[in-house]
Design a protein around this nucleic acid. Structure first.
Lengths: 117, 117
DNA sequence: AACTTGTTCTAGTCTGCATAGAACAGTTAG
DNA sequence: CTAACTGTTCTATGCAGACTAGAACAAGTT
């Protein structure tokens, strides 16, 4: 599992970290049940603070993609199927673009509903 | 042309302003060639600083959506084609992925609705 | 029991956001 | 031409979030 970070990016480091893992799951680089690198290890590898990595991991947990337990580390949930992760990413991209355009939730969902019909 | 702002949103005010105008152009509320409200007026109407509005306007200029000139104000460029193309692309990608997974329209729209919240 | 790993807490620095006021330079209207 | 309007530029200040840092703690593994 490879996580790359761009310190010059306007995107927060923790967001970059969670995005990298998210993508890894979506593309299949990371298998369900697989353990992510320890927060302290990854932090050292990226030249970043422990708390920054932890925050990224906790974002993934909030999305239901990984489980975090002391002593065991971060583990990709078995029900976090790659396809689902891919879908989640597609939703993410759409929502991001919609936000950029300032569209409301109903406007976007209406577009999706039409496209699905 | 209506511009609404949420001071409690994590999104910067200048981004919210540019997004509102962007949306107006995308949806057709604002016609090409139309003049946007003066920065000082809009700032007063929104209870926001002049510089904040100006920054939003300048973002739109950087995207080639509007022209800014002293004395004349902000004008929507006639060739400001709806940037909705990117949005439609995102919708297309999402729908394709959702179909591949056999998800229903309501399931997908619900995911989008959640992600937009 | 020793070690690992996430959790929580406090605290400090730094950057971007937003505000504020002023002076300036094209543009338009009277 | 003059006056009013509008974006441009400059300096300065307060604030919140991001990131770092160090420490102590709790649950799990070996």
């Amino acid at each position: 599992m490879l996580v790359r970070i761009d310190p010059d990016s306007p995107a927060p480091l923790h967001a970059q970290i969670s995005a990298a893992v998210r993508r890894g799951i979506a593309v299949g680089e990371i298998a369900p049940g697989e353990r992510l690198p320890g927060a302290r290890d990854l932090a050292a590898a990226l030249g970043v603070n422990l708390h920054t990595v932890l925050r990224g991991y906790q974002e993934l947990r909030a999305e239901g993609l990984v489980e975090l337990r002391r002593g065991r580390g971060a583990q990709v949930r078995t029900d976090a199927a790659p396809a689902v992760a891919a879908l989640r990413q597609a939703v993410h991209a759409l929502v991001g673009e919609a936000r950029r355009l300032g569209l409301s939730a109903t406007e976007v969902t209406e577009m999706v509903r039409e496209a699905m019909a």
